[in-house]
């Protein structure tokens, strides 16, 4: 009896904490439904009492191409990241290359380089090679956010694949490539999902590379769509917030369908146990 009353008290407190934490998210949604004439009202409406879909209509009319570009960039980044990272991790985890430790160290360091600085180097290269303002250029730059992380996650996971499984494949006459393709990759499905989720999310959310390497591009991602909005019409905050809500959909979907992979990704980079 006391036990249950106690847990309910904790649940109540937990709900309050969560509500406080998520208030900005709620406010974004609330503003996205607010009419223009109520936008500067003081005090503001705490709920969308005169809710309008004006903002979302603006998103549908104006932001479609941006969203499509972000989707392409996100999927391209996932593909490139998997192709580069999975074989490397297989080698580091199972084939014991000489110098593998140094490579892992380099990957750890690579994760720490600020994106702003990478952007400047990429800008110089892209300008002289004509890749500036192109979608493939943006995909390559965005993949640098994910590749080192992906190799480290994959390596941690693949190290755990039992040696007996590898030996069984070898006895059956499978070479290194066949073992990788038919044994290691299928077993690593969970880590493939984790890596894909994060690579997509980081590419989708990227602003630094988009604003430097694609600012004059014909196909721009949604982060630039929002940025132009903020710059151009400071008044239509319902449209800005509606775009922000739409841009948050992938993050929300990922959290709902793949919560345990997300938590795994957050901890995997930091805690080694």
């Amino acid at each position: 009896m006391t036990q249950t009353r106690r847990t309910w008290w904790r649940t109540g407190l937990g709900v309050v904490f969560t509500a406080l934490m998520l208030f900005p998210v709620y406010w974004m949604i609330n503003v996205s439904f607010t009419r223009d004439q109520d936008m500067r009202k003081s005090p503001p409406y705490w709920f969308p009492v005169h809710g309008t879909l004006e903002g979302y209509r603006a998103v549908l009319e104006q932001q479609g191409p941006y969203l499509a570009t972000s989707l392409v960039v996100g999927l391209g980044t996932v593909a490139l990241t998997l192709v580069i990272a999975a074989p490397a991790a297989y080698s580091l985890a199972k084939l014991r290359p000489r110098g593998g430790g140094v490579l892992s160290f380099v990957l750890l360091i690579a994760q720490m380089i600020p994106g702003v600085i990478m952007a400047m180097g990429f800008y110089a290269i892209y300008l002289s090679t004509g890749v500036l303002n192109t979608v493939p250029g943006l995909i390559v730059a965005d993949s640098t956010l994910a590749v080192p992380f992906a190799v480290l996650i994959f390596t941690a996971f693949m190290s755990g694949i039992p040696e007996e499984l590898m030996q069984a494949a070898r006895v059956d006459g499978a070479g290194a490539f066949r073992t990788f393709w038919s044994v290691v990759l299928p077993v690593s499905r969970n880590s493939v999902i984790t890596v894909s989720l994060f690579a997509f999310l980081w590419a989708w959310s990227d602003f630094v590379f988009a604003s430097t390497l694609d600012q004059g591009g014909g196909h721009q991602p949604i982060t630039l769509g929002i940025y132009h909005y903020i710059g151009n019409n400071n008044q239509e905050w319902n449209a800005i917030m509606a775009t922000a809500v739409v841009a948050s959909i992938p993050a929300t979907v990922l959290l709902v369908i793949a919560q345990r992979y997300v938590a795994a990704g957050v901890t995997a980079g930091a805690v080694k146990d």
Binding site: F207, T223, S248, L255
Partner: peptide, 13 residues
């Protein structure tokens, strides 16, 4: 799990 939301949102959002 809900506490993860702020971390997952695009920074521009």
């Amino acid at each position: 799990a809900l506490f993860l939301v702020p971390w997952l949102l695009p920074l521009i959002v």
